[in-house]
Amino acid sequence: MTMTPRELIEHALKEGRTWLYEHEAKMLCSLYGIPVAKSRVAKSKEEALKIASEIGYPVVLKIVSPDVLHKSDVGGVIVNIKSEEELVKAYDRMMSSVKEKKPDARIKGVLVQEMVPQATEVIIGGIRDPQFGPAVMFGLGGIFVEIFRDVSFRIAPIDEEDAWEMIHEIKGFQILKGYRGTTPADIEALVDAIVKTSNMLTENSEIDQLDLNPVFVFEKGVKVIDARVILRK
């Protein structure tokens, strides 16, 4: 079933959510041509097994609940599941953990996602400022953004040149370019993803904040691993 960005957002708002489920957020990214990690929602353990075999192990499980925005806090994310046995165990563990930590949470299912090989982690963000409207953010993942706040911003909409500057502006740029023999990351694909994020923000005024975090940057191409989209009430 393909929805338009508008339908996706209106669907969530109609359900009383001011944020998109991860799979909805990723669908939104896909609709804008931003590559995302393969994933599908399973409504049962059996369905999860089926999807996992189609996607191929290892996989990641993530809880889908309208009452859980921060999935890790309730044990709602389990990574690197290598086999059917592991998936069954992980599934049960996740259900009991979520029930224990958030007893009243309505569980809609689990998201089964491919386990993407490690790459350079970046964050692409979006935010709406009351004065200047939509703005995009770029930074390197992990401690660079957490500790050093090494990020760059631009008021949207932006073009390729702006995105290119945003990437070059951060202090950790050298890490993307490659150092001590590491392979350089695909800057062009990153530029493309940032510009498309800017389009997503400017064309959907309901989006208040968004995090594509992390986005993996490979030698060739990028992939959104996790996405969060917060809507305006």
Binding site: I127, D129, M137, V145, Q209, R228
Partner: peptide, 12 residues
């Protein structure tokens, strides 16, 4: 969001 926590109003 993470982005929100990184964006002081002066940034804009």
């Amino acid at each position: 969001s993470h982005t929100g926590s990184l964006a002081g109003s002066d940034v804009f």
